[in-house]
Simulated assay, not measured.
Amino acid sequence: MASAISYELFTAKRGAADGIASLDIDSKIPLSQLPDIAIDSYKGQFADTAALIAAYPTGELSDYAYVTATNSYWYWNAALASPAWVNQQITEADYIALSTAEKAGVPYIVIS
């Protein structure tokens, strides 16, 4: 009896607001069940920076994309005098040398 109730509860909650996410055929959560922040910030994968800039000439705080030509993530930096997409790759040693406050403000990718 408990399994039938559990199954009914699972079925009722699957894919519903405040419920349990379902999985698609590729075993991934469908985009329709993810919060906007999980989708809107990531702009996708681009072959090179020219393709990224062509698709998104401007951005918003927290926007990022993956560029295969540089094998790295790029972030929109609105704090620059001329806002732009920036590749913030730093070595692990350079990251460790930053102060706590600097680390909090730097999205980074560690490279060897």
Rank of each mutant, 00 (worst) to 15 (best):
A2V: 01
S3G: 02
S3F: 09
S3T: 08
S3D: 01
A4W: 05
A4E: 00
I5V: 12
I5N: 04
I5D: 05
S6P: 07
Y7T: 06
E8Y: 00
E8G: 03
T11L: 02
K13S: 00
K13G: 00
R14Y: 00
R14C: 01
A16M: 13
A17Q: 08
I20H: 04
A21Y: 09
A21I: 09
L23G: 02
L23W: 04
D24F: 03
S27R: 15
P30H: 03
L34N: 00
A38W: 15
I39L: 12
I39Y: 10
D40R: 10
S41D: 08
S41L: 11
S41W: 13
Y42Q: 03
K43N: 09
K43H: 11
K43L: 14
G44Y: 05
Q45V: 11
F46D: 00
A47E: 02
A47P: 06
A51C: 00
A51W: 07
I53D: 12
A55P: 09
A55Q: 05
A55G: 03
A55L: 04
A55S: 03
A55K: 06
P57D: 04
T58L: 04
G59W: 01
E60M: 08
L61P: 12
S62A: 02
Y66L: 06
Y66E: 07
V67C: 05
T68H: 05
A69M: 02
A69Q: 04
T70N: 14
T70G: 13
T70Y: 15
N71C: 01
W74M: 10
Y75K: 11
W76M: 11
L80N: 09
A81E: 09
A81H: 03
S82K: 14
S82E: 13
S82Y: 14
P83T: 00
W85K: 09
V86K: 12
Q88G: 04
Q88V: 06
T91W: 12
E92C: 10
A93R: 13
D94T: 13
D94M: 10
D94R: 14
D94A: 14
Y95A: 02
Y95I: 06
A97T: 00
S99H: 14
T100R: 12
T100P: 07
E102Y: 08
K103T: 07
G105K: 11
G105C: 05
V106W: 12
Y108V: 15
Y108G: 10
I109Y: 12
V110M: 15
I111R: 12
I111T: 08
S112D: 10
